[in-house]
Design a protein around this nucleic acid. Structure first.
Length: 443
RNA sequence: GCCCGGGUGGUGUAGCGGCCUAUCAUUGAGCCCUGUCGAGGCUCGGACUCGGGUUCAAAUCCCGACCUGGGCGCCA
C-alpha cells in the first residue's frame, strides 16, 4: 500500500480550518464532474462527502487522465492537501499534492450500476433489495440502518442501566412455544426441530434461575404465509421478563423505553434525509381496555364481537381515535396464550373472562404485547391442557415452575415495527438489511 | 390461501391494436468546456418477462407460466 490509508480521515473530520494540512481520504467515487480544464471527484465515505479538485494545468497528465477515467462507485484513496475554498461544498476541497499527488484505485466498479446512488433516479424496493449492498450507499437507506443500530444500542443502554441481564436463548427448539403461529421445521441430525418463534419459554425459565430481570434482542421466526407490508418471516424482537412485579410495572418500563428510544433518535441529524419529523411521545401512554376498544370500533360502524382479535381495519379505527401510542389492556382470556395470568374477578358474572395481558399500539400497527405471567405450576399445567396442547412437550418448561418460581411479567417488542412506525416508513422491509418474506430468501 | 393491479434499455418512466425503426430522464462511450455542487452543450450506444393464441397487423387484445405492487385472511 503506497498511501497512508489507515490514517485516513472521514469526511466529517475535515473542515476549512484544516487548510494546508496533508490528509488522505478513502471511499467510493460518488460523482464526477468533468468541466474540461477542471475535474471534480466527489468521494463518499461512511460519514459524508469530500470534493477532490484537479486542475488540468496543475497536475500530472497521467493523474488527471486516471481520475477522469475512474468509473463511478470505484473505491479510491487520495493523498492531498486541504484547501479552504468558498466555492467548494462544505467550504473546503482536497488538492492532490503537486509532484506527490496521487489517486490510487483500490477497486474498479463495473458500470451499469444496479441502481443510482445519488438519488437522481429512484428505484423500487424490490430492485433495492436485490442490490442491497448498493442501496445502503444511498443517503436515505444508510441513515435508516444507522438509526436501527442507534435504537438497538439505546435499548441495551436503557435496560442495562436498569440492571437487566442480557441473555441468549436457543433459536433451534423442539416444539412450538405457544401454539398459534406456524413454525419452520428444520432437520436436526436424526430428529425434527423448529426455528423458535419467540424466546418466551426460555426467558421465563431464567426467571426461575434467579436472574430477576432479563432481556434478549434476537431473531424470531414465523412460518406464516402472510405477504404484507408489516410482516416478516424473520424478525427481531426485544424480549423482557421481570420477576416480583406486575404487568403495570412492565408496561411503565415499556413506555419509558419507547420514549427513551425516540428521544435518542430525535437528536440524529441523519433524520432529515429520511424526511421525518420525530416527536417524542408523551408518557404515560393512554390505557384502553379491550371492552372500551370494542365500543369504539362498533361506534365507527365496524362489525366486531367481544372475544375476537382485532382486524387490520379495527386497528386502524382505534389508531385514528387514539392518535398516539396507547395500550390495550384486559384482553379476553381465550385469545391469549396459556402463560398469561387470568384476571379472575374483573368481569365475573358477565361471561367475559379477561386476563392481565396488554398490547402496545402505535396508531398504525401493533408494536408489542405482554402480560402478567402464570407462575403456579398447577395452573400453568391446567392452562396448557385446556388450550389443547401437550403437557409432555412442555415438561422442560413446566419443571422450572416446580422449584421456586417468583411472580413475573414481561413483554416482547418488534424492533422492525418500532422502526417503521417511528420513521413513518410504508414497508417493514425498509428497516431490514436482508429481509426474509414469503418470496425472498436471497440475498 | 383469496381478491385486485403491474411487468418496456442498468435504473426510473411514456406509449395501451397500424402513426413504434418505441418517449423522456438518468447511466455508459466520445467530443467541447477552468468552479462544478441534480454542472452545461453536441453526437452515439442500450429495452417491450417467457410461451401459446386472436388479427392483414400485437409492446398494445386473450390464455398460461414466472416475477412483482397493494388489500384481505392468518399472524406479531
Amino acid at each position: 500500500m503506497l498511501l497512508p490509508i489507515e490514517n485516513r480521515r472521514y469526511a466529517n473530520e475535515i473542515t476549512a480550518d484544516d487548510d494546508g494540512e496533508r490528509v488522505s481520504i478513502a471511499g467510493w467515487v460518488h460523482e464526477k464532474r468533468d468541466l474540461g480544464g477542471v475535474l471534480f471527484l466527489i468521494i463518499r465515505d461512511r460519514a459524508g462527502y469530500v470534493q477532490i479538485t484537479l486542475q488540468k494545468r496543475r497536475v500530472e497528465k497521467e493523474l488527471f487522465e486516471k481520475a477522469k477515467k475512474v468509473p463511478r462507485e470505484s473505491v479510491v484513496v487520495i493523498d492531498g492537501i486541504v484547501k479552504s475554498e468558498k466555492k467548494a461544498p462544505n467550504g473546503y476541497e482536497i488538492i492532490p499534492i503537486p509532484g506527490h499527488g496521487r489517486i490510487e484505485i483500490l477497486s474498479v466498479a463495473l458500470h451499469n450500476l444496479p441502481l443510482d446512488t445519488t438519488g437522481k433516479v429512484g428505484a423500487e424496493l424490490d430492485t433495492r433489495l436485490d442490490a442491497r449492498f448498493m442501496d445502503v450507499r444511498t443517503e436515505r437507506t444508510k441513515h435508516i440502518f444507522i438509526i436501527r443500530s442507534m435504537v438497538q444500542r439505546a435499548i441495551r443502554d436503557f435496560l442495562s442501566e436498569r440492571n437487566f441481564i442480557e441473555i441468549n436463548t436457543p433459536k433451534i427448539v423442539s416444539s412450538a412455544t405457544e401454539g398459534g403461529t406456524a413454525l419452520f421445521p428444520i432437520s436436526y441430525f436424526e430428529r425434527e426441530a423448529f426455528l423458535n418463534q419467540s424466546p418466551q419459554l426460555y426467558k421465563q425459565m431464567l426467571i426461575a434461575s434467579g436472574f430477576d430481570r432479563v432481556y434478549e434482542i434476537a431473531p424470531i421466526f414465523r412460518a406464516e404465509e402472510h405477504d404484507t407490508t408489516k410482516h416478516l418471516n424473520e424478525a427481531a424482537s426485544v424480549d423482557v421478563e421481570v420477576a416480583f412485579v406486575s404487568d403495570e410495572t412492565v408496561m411503565k418500563l415499556l413506555e419509558e423505553l419507547i420514549a427513551h428510544v425516540y428521544s435518542t433518535v430525535s437528536l440524529y441529524p441523519g433524520l432529515k434525509s429520511i424526511n421525518v419529523q420525530l416527536e417524542v411521545p408523551k408518557i404515560p401512554f393512554k390505557r384502553l381496555r379491550y371492552d372500551e376498544a370494542i365500543e369504539i370500533i362498533l361506534d365507527a360502524g365496524e362489525q366486531i364481537e367481544w372475544g375476537v382479535d382485532l382486524s387490520s381495519s379495527a386497528e386502524r379505527i382505534l389508531g385514528e381515535a387514539m392518535g398516539e401510542h396507547y395500550f390495550i389492556t384486559d384482553w379476553p382470556y381465550t385469545i391469549k396464550p396459556f402463560y398469561v395470568q387470568f384476571t379472575g374477578s374483573k368481569d365475573k358474572g358477565k361471561g367475559k373472562d379477561t386476563c392481565d395481558a396488554f398490547d402496545l399500539m402505535h396508531p398504525r400497527l401493533e408494536l408489542a404485547s405482554g402480560s402478567q405471567r402464570v407462575h403456579s405450576y398447577e395452573l400453568l399445567k391446567e392452562n396448557i391442557e385446556s388450550k389443547g396442547l401437550s403437557v409432555d412437550s412442555f415438561e422442560f418448561y413446566l419443571n422450572a415452575f416446580r422449584y421456586g418460581m417468583p411472580p413475573h411479567a414481561g413483554w416482547g417488542l418488534g424492533i422492525e415495527r418500532l422502526l417503521m412506525s417511528m420513521l413513518e416508513l410504508d414497508n417493514i422491509r425498509e428497516v431490514v438489511l436482508f429481509p426474509r418474506d414469503r418470496r425472498r430468501l436471497v440475498p
